[in-house]
């Protein structure tokens, strides 16, 4: 929001947003690594869930930095879809029994 940038001490919010983006990009990278390496299927599923959650976080931070609150609805729908995917994967894992990869 341009209003926030111009107030006194505005540099802080700017820096926090940049730091949050950087940290979330880093954790996205680490989650991707786990997705590619993951010894078992369950590891990969957890990595995918983590990536979805981080993406929700990125959307939330972007909402703050851009000031357009409509993006929050995108975050809501994405979180819902991620939850559905988690439940679906859990069903699949339960049906198929334990095993590696």
């Amino acid at each position: 929001m341009s209003l926030m940038w111009s107030t006194e001490g505005a540099g802080l919010l700017e820096w926090v947003i940049i730091a949050a983006f950087a940290l979330m990009c880093l954790s996205l990278g680490l989650a991707t690594l786990r997705l590619l390496l993951g010894p078992t299927l369950a590891d990969r599923v957890v990595a995918l869930e983590l990536m979805a959650s981080i993406t929700v976080g990125i959307i939330a931070v972007y909402t703050i930095s851009s000031g357009v609150s409509d993006f929050l609805d995108v975050a809501v729908v994405l979180a819902l879809t991620a939850f559905l995917a988690a439940v679906g994967f859990a069903r699949y894992l339960e049906k198929r029994g334990h095993g590696d990869d």
Partner: peptide
């Protein structure tokens, strides 16, 4: 899509 997600949660 959101409505079908709601029903899919119920279905699961």
């Amino acid at each position: 899509l959101v409505a079908s997600c709601a029903f899919v949660v119920y279905l699961f």
